[in-house]
Design a protein around this nucleic acid. Structure first.
Lengths: 344, 344
DNA sequence: CTTCAAATTGCAACCGATTGCATAAATTTT
DNA sequence: AAAATTTATGCAATCGGTTGCAATTTGAAG
């Protein structure tokens, strides 16, 4: 046997004088194989340095044991946490994952979906890109009965299971907190309103204002890309508003941090002149000054739940089509950037 | 034909009255197939919704068209940039990537290497974990002639190609900069000295001091995990040193940011009382205050180069064993945290 | 010592694409 | 028009593991 040649079950079968079928069964602990034979097979496999060939196996089984992950971004603490949760569960269950990220481009998301489809993943876990216009690229999966779990960024009335936080509540809570701190003129900086996360937070913002008998003015909603350039622009707009807002609820920590810099360079004191609340509890929250009040989002847990649901479905232990939405709890973390009054 | 059944080249062959071999060749643009036949095959493939079966193909070709990526961490702007560079090149070349990260655990790295080995990746791109003790888990790849490219965190005298920056020079440069700014007592906070990146930076630090006729005291080298807790601890140590250091070169931006917080809460002014230089040019550099001077590290480029080398080798266009190290340029970005004198 | 059931193991046909070699068809040359 | 090329296509084996069913062995019961 050439040393660079791969060992197969046929090699093991030959040296042990059994059939390849027996070896195959023995390696996967099939109940019909006697304990003694199993042991012999396992030992010989180890001795010869056998490694099973996934392709042959997948080809025959018509299963890939692979789950496709569609992400909108990797430069995000939250997303990486979700990924860690997904990995934990999938690894335990013996699934591989194929990660594809779109860098927030809907177009790339479509291409990635296409690619995962051709790779024949057994299931999909997805969070939509910033500007994904519709879900038609997911239809091909549904048609082949390939299950999909969406998380975080979802389409509200789509098919498939969704794992999300209550963005409405979080938005309401953040706004209420600013009002409780004595803010009179609160602004909300947010993203694309066709994305559920931003739409719901904005709705929570609006309702919190109305419930507190504050005027709701559409001009108080600043819709941006939440990137550096746009955030700086909006921050400057806010600086020039008359009267100047005294509270900002920003739908992303990064954007909030950029705004804080702008406000500070303009000489404003945070939170005295203007209080700030972010969203996501990213690492930067505690590195900037003052530390940023934010909504904490349990990433790892979200990933674990999404993966668990999908795998249960794939293993036939649960039917995904019966579940619609799973809401994970989130909470407000109060830090210096918004704390004008001492906590009672 | 059942609707949920996959279309194969046999189906296409049958409807067109040609052989499967012709279809196979036609689909991959084999020169022996006539243009007309190719067109017919392509059209029919599209019409029937054919998608090629990678497993069958890989099984036959004994190639996976997959590259394994071993990373020490994903919570890092730098690493994600490298990943983006790798992805760009591998996608163009028609390779898949399998990403495994060890969360800085050498033990997990070994398990990941094992896993990628069993998945039969065609090649490996790796950056070592914080505490990887040796490279024995890479031997199995060498034995099967599976090429490996290391980047950033490498073992200095290992086999295989390395793509790195000149950490010595960067360390020297950072230290020289602090000295140029008038610092008299400079401290270096760094990580595990068996990792090349930290060792070389520390060496550059030392030589810069000596070349400037400054005393080099091993106590000026603070070796830590560079995580939050350790960084805070070291920062407090530094605060209590007599005489107190007036310059800190920290081998990571995150750790530098944590130190800055500690120093600022203690009432020190940055850079007047203590100047700080980080490493990596992470996003936080420009969000904290004062903005952090750092060493910029071209992540995307590094990933592109590592991937390109590997793929050229796999395609037989270059021999990886002839290349040893590729040094990518890095540079010092001066910001407020260290700038005591105006730039001339 | 049979007879029958249970426990093991083997046979052989898949899964779908690839490719060396042979053959057939089209084109050119003599 | 026959022979020699060139161009296209087909045949059939191969990659390695899986699994329904048949066959054999073992053990227990009568």
């Amino acid at each position: 046997m050439r040393p660079d040649k791969e060992v197969t079950i046929y090699d093991i079968a030959r040296t042990l004088n059994v059939s390849p079928a027996t070896v195959s069964r023995g390696l996967k602990d099939h109940p019909a194989i006697s304990t003694k034979t199993k042991r012999r097979i396992l030992e010989k496999a180890k001795e010869l340095g056998y490694r099973s060939n996934n392709f042959a196996s997948n080809l025959r089984k018509q299963k890939t044991q692979t789950i496709g992950i569609l992400l909108h971004e990797l430069h995000s603490h939250f997303i990486v946490s979700v990924l860690a949760g997904i990995e934990k569960v999938t690894t335990e269950a013996g699934y591989d994952i194929l990660i594809a990220h779109s860098s927030e481009s809907g177009q790339k998301e479509v291409a990635n979906a296409q690619n995962l489809f051709h790779k024949r993943v057994d299931g999909i876990i997805a969070s939509l890109a910033f500007d994904t216009p519709d879900l038609s690229h997911f239809l091909q999966f549904s048609e082949k009965n390939i299950p999909i779990v969406f998380f975080d960024r979802v389409e509200e009335d789509s098919l498939g299971t969704k794992v999300i936080i209550d963005n409405y509540k979080a938005g309401y809570q953040a706004t209420q907190h600013l009002l409780d701190q004595g803010c009179k003129r609160v602004i909300h900086i947010t993203g694309n309103q066709s994305r559920n996360v931003y739409k719901q937070r904005a709705k929570g913002f609006k309702d919190a204002l109305l419930d507190n008998n504050q005027e709701y003015n559409p001009a108080n909603l600043k819709i941006t890309d939440l990137d550096r350039v746009e955030s700086e622009k909006v921050a400057n707009e806010i600086l020039n508003m008359q009267p100047r807002p005294d509270g900002v609820f920003c739908a992303g920590d990064f954007s909030a941090a950029v705004c804080m810099r702008v406000f500070k360079s303009a000489g404003l004191r945070i939170p005295e002149d203007i209080a700030i609340v972010g969203f996501n509890n990213d690492v930067i929250c505690t590195l900037i000054e003052p530390q940023l009040t934010t909504i904490n989002y349990p990433g790892v847990e979200m990933g674990e739940i999404a993966a668990r649901i999908l795998i249960n479905h794939l293993n036939g232990n649960a039917d995904i089509t019966l579940t619609n939405s799973i809401i994970i709890k989130s909470d407000l973390i109060v830090r210096e950037s918004s704390l004008r009054k001492p906590i009672e």
